Simulated scan of single mutants.
Amino acid sequence: MALEPKEESDTIKLGIPQSTDASAVHLLIQNSPPLDTNSLYCNLLQTSHFAKTAIVAKMNNDVVGFVSGYIKPEQPDTYFLWQVVVGEAARGRGLAKRMITALFQRDHFANVRWLETTITPDNKASQRLFESLAEGWQAHIDVRVLFEKEAHFAGQHESEELYRIGPVNP
């Protein structure tokens, strides 16, 4: 159950990001360790070129949440979720789940049946989020290593496990 806003000013609105949101998204990610910070230019591309497959959450016109991803070119029935972030001011409201569900309700996602993302083995919060989505959607979830610590990250980053959820029917 989502928490009700304490005041009208606590209302969180979801929308398609604009390129002018990029710097706020970049700052939100920077202030949300241990998330990997991408370049501001990358966030600009996410909020412009990939805006239809991203979502921004705003409270009092401040960016408090963001989901980025893309529909895989070789698998048009699969959405790859690159990153999800919820700022401290908006935590505890089920916002991450709400943003992802809202994405899948867009017309642009009409043919998408699978959700993929990668999660490191120590990221229990993200694991719970995606397991909860799968359960709520009554979808199957498969987990396997996609990128290995040594082979892909030269030992500089933990392995990334692929979570494949579907078929999706939010």
Rank of each mutant, 00 (worst) to 15 (best):
F130V: 07
W137C: 12
D122L: 07
Q46T: 00
A102L: 01
H49Q: 08
T53L: 05
A57P: 15
V85M: 13
I29A: 07
Q105I: 00
V86M: 11
S132W: 06
N38F: 11
P33W: 13
A2T: 11
E88Q: 13
P121D: 15
D10Q: 08
G92W: 09
E74Q: 04
H157S: 09
G69Y: 03
E148F: 04
A125V: 15
F104C: 00
R164I: 02
E8N: 00
R113L: 13
K72H: 10
P33M: 13
E74F: 06
P34C: 13
L40A: 04
A151K: 07
F153M: 04
V85G: 11
Q138P: 03
S19G: 14
I55H: 02
N38G: 05
E135S: 14
E135T: 12
G94F: 09
H157V: 03
L115K: 06
T120V: 14
H157C: 09
G155Y: 03
K149C: 12
Q105S: 02
F147H: 11
S19K: 13
A110G: 01
E131D: 13
G92E: 10
N169F: 02
H108S: 10
I100E: 02
P167S: 03
V64N: 15
V64S: 14
E135I: 04
G87P: 12
E116R: 14
A90N: 09
V145F: 05
A22I: 01
V56R: 09
V67M: 04
A90T: 09
I165T: 02
V112Y: 01
L28S: 10
C42M: 10
T118Q: 11
E158Q: 07
T20D: 12
V64H: 14
D62M: 12
T120C: 06
F147A: 08
A22P: 04
K97I: 05
A22S: 09
S39M: 07
E74M: 01
P34L: 11
E160N: 00
E148I: 02
Q75P: 02
L14T: 03
V86S: 08
N31L: 15
R98L: 05
S48Y: 00
V168M: 08
G166W: 01
A54E: 00
F153S: 06
Q18G: 08
L40P: 01
L162E: 10
C42N: 07
K58L: 12
M99F: 11
E116C: 12
V84I: 15
M1N: 13
T120P: 00
